[in-house]
């Protein structure tokens, strides 16, 4: 156990060195989230209205979510890189636990997501986003967001191990992310949708986490709908993310231990 921890620490250190060496990566976790907040918050914020508050306040949870979802391709691309340059083979030929390599990567990617959250919160504050329910609840919301990001990283690891090529990862991660983000309440209240689509949107895990965050931040939650996801968003989010992790983590572990570069 302590050995696994020290392995994970060494591997997380490796990923941080990458960032330091490849500034482009820092741009994607720094500039992009800031740009999202500015574009969505200011541009659309001035054009759109929601009941019970400002659109800036409404949309922040959606922007946070989008960055968490980007962890799918972030982690998947990293895994594909390690596979294609043979590092996975090297790691697998060492007497380290099979989980250490994947935990190292998903943890590092979660740390990056946390960094993005800090930046987005800062810029969000500047354009008028506020938390209304106190710091502990806001921190709980960020915890939930990062937990989702962590689960998406594991999903990305599985995707990377299964697809093994940058092109397929780019195509598939995008196709998986788009409907999840846009068929949710992340950017617009889903109450205008046809009934069946609205049900899909309400049960979309992204919507649950978004709603949970809005409640915890004290931001407007318009067009919530009814049913379990709307009534107990925090609990439902936790259950769902837990469920995703329970399925995806062992699957990734298995995929890793039989991984081949081809």
């Amino acid at each position: 156990m302590t050995e696994t921890l020290s392995d994970v620490r060494a591997l997380v250190g490796r990923h941080f060195r990458h960032i330091y060496r490849i500034p482009e990566q820092l741009i994607s976790v720094t500039i992009m989230p800031i740009a999202f907040v500015l574009i969505f918050g200011m541009l659309f914020g001035s054009a759109m209205k929601v009941e019970g508050g400002s659109y800036q306040e409404y949309i922040m949870a959606g922007i946070f979510i989008q960055v968490m979802m980007a962890n799918i391709s972030q982690t998947a691309l990293g895994v594909v890189g390690d596979l294609s340059n043979g590092l996975v083979d090297r790691f697998r030929s060492l007497p380290i636990s099979r989980s250490a390599v994947l935990i190292g990567r998903t943890t590092a990617d979660m740390a990056l997501a946390a960094w993005s959250c800090v930046l987005m919160a800062g810029v969000g504050y500047l354009i008028g986003w506020r938390i209304h329910n106190g710091l502990p609840k806001a921190l709980a919301a960020f915890g939930l967001l990062l937990l989702l990001g962590f689960a998406m990283s594991w999903l990305g690891a599985l995707l990377g191990l299964a697809l093994r090529s940058t092109e397929s990862v780019n195509a598939l991660a995008f196709m998986a992310m788009m409907p999840l983000v846009f068929l949710s309440n992340a950017f617009v209240p889903p109450d205008g949708l046809p009934t069946w689509l609205r049900v899909v949107a309400e049960w979309n895990p992204v919507s649950m986490v978004v709603t949970a965050c809005r409640q915890l931040f004290g931001n407007p939650t318009v067009g919530l709908g009814t049913g379990l996801p709307a009534e107990h968003p925090v609990l439902m989010s936790l259950l769902l993310i837990g469920g995703i992790l329970a399925v995806v983590v062992p699957m990734s572990g298995r995929a890793y231990s039989t991984a081949t570069a081809r």
Binding site: S6, D7, A10, L11, R14, R17, H18, R21, I22, N85, G86, L87, D89, R90, F91, L94, P95, I96, A100
Partner: peptide, 23 residues
């Protein structure tokens, strides 16, 4: 292995030290 299995973005020294830590 048949293809060099190295971390392209680490230095030579860091590559070896990483393996040493993992061992």
């Amino acid at each position: 292995g048949q293809y060099a299995a190295l971390d392209e973005r680490l230095t030579g020294r860091e590559n070896l030290r990483l393996i040493g830590t993992l061992l």
